[in-house]
Design a protein around this nucleic acid. Structure first.
Lengths: 214, 214
DNA sequence: ATATGAAGGTGTAGTTTTTACACTATTATC
DNA sequence: GATAATAGTGTAAAAACTACACCTTCATAT
């Protein structure tokens, strides 16, 4: 029974977003360096409530998709100071402000998953596990929609899949597969960008809900 | 930071085995009632080490397959007494002694998942989640082999799948699928039971290892 | 006005995977 | 030697997946 007194239970969140063909993680400034958002869980606080609280406080993110990932006992840093962290990942839609042209003094910034700084205990391991989990969930759930803006084109959705998986997909097969899931619908509107045919816009049929498929 | 002092981090383990076409969970006696094996995690102890320790101490089980399931913040029971439990599930081979004809004073006993007693906080929820996780893993891993004895017949393996899934499977299709995975091999021996043709015995090619398939 | 560049959008044939389905083989017992 | 019980096996139809190429629509430049 005696272990409890020396123990700090914390949460760490891996906030993912896709920015320009890159899978990025939002890190928060803590003292001198950049770390995953998170911190100690308060007495009586729900675990996911703590994760949301730190995400909001340290990065300004609200109303994101959040999913528990794994719980890690971190190696002791100081004698008798035991840290256990309940890791989560969050999916942030692409239109949450990215870093392009941001002032240097901001408290949070996006960084590509393959360019993470040497980091806090378990940081890289947590991100890697979250990335794997996300990639495998693409195959059997509609989780990718949580990374999209309210309206999006099929090409954008395909790019999100490709970025997470790290491989290119066939356009026709991808569309067939996604449309067969009956998880998105046309808005009727078109997205017009310069220099080519406008793309049809889609939206999630059940936004905020992740369905399992197969 | 103040939450830590009131917090007890515990582990709970859902030990599964199949006994005679039933999926059963091994409960440990604690005071007056039967609960999932588990208890507080000691300072400096690895999480899965704690799970193994309680499993061994409270039920006598050793060397089982163990996998982290989910972490739950339990509702407070007394003011200021916060419990957080890291839940695991364990897979126990069918030949670990079942309860048939056991003395009434034993410290652990198997009970079918659908006959669990009204239980400790989260007990039923943890078992239900573990069952769902196990069932879904049958589809994309060789995890079912962890429930088998060293040698087993294909019919036994099929019965294990059927029990976990709660549905019957086609014998020919099941065998084709399992053999295509290249995860088991014939021992050459036969299991002879009374009154019918003897069955070929198989063993896992990589015992103790769970492979992902597809 | 017309040509060009850039992404959007579409169908089909071949292959592989999955499903449904029924009978013979081998043993112990009566 | 008949019976009861489980072991063991193949094939055809359906469904899912894969590979693959061309026309459309817009903006821009000439």
């Amino acid at each position: 029974m005696s272990g409890a007194a020396h123990l700090t239970l914390t949460t760490d969140v891996v906030p993912f977003a896709i920015h320009g063909e890159r899978l990025e993680v939002l890190l928060a400034r803590q003292a001198a360096d950049w770390r995953l958002p998170g911190g100690p869980i308060a007495a009586g606080e729900e675990l996911d409530a703590a994760a949301r609280r730190y995400l909001a406080a340290q990065t300004g993110l609200n109303d994101v998709y959040l999913e528990q990932l794994y719980t890690f006992a971190q190696p002791k840093r100081h004698a008798g100071q035991r840290m256990v962290t309940v890791a989560y990942f969050a999916l942030v839609s692409t239109d949450f402000p990215s870093d392009d042209g941001a002032p240097a003094d901001r408290q949070a910034h996006w960084i590509a998953v393959n360019e993470l700084p040497a980091q806090a205990p378990d940081g890289a391991e947590i991100v890697a596990l979250a990335h794997r989990r996300l990639a495998s969930k693409l195959a059997y759930s509609t989780i990718a929609l949580q990374l999209m803006t309210e309206h999006f084109t099929l090409s954008e959705l395909q790019a999100v899949h490709e970025t997470i998986l790290g491989e290119t997909l066939d356009k026709r097969n991808f569309r067939k597969r996604i449309l067969a899931l009956d998880c998105i619908e046309q808005t009727g509107a078109l997205e017009r960008r310069r220099g080519h045919r406008p793309a049809r816009l889609f939206r999630a049929k059940r936004p905020g809900q992740v369905d399992f498929i197969k």
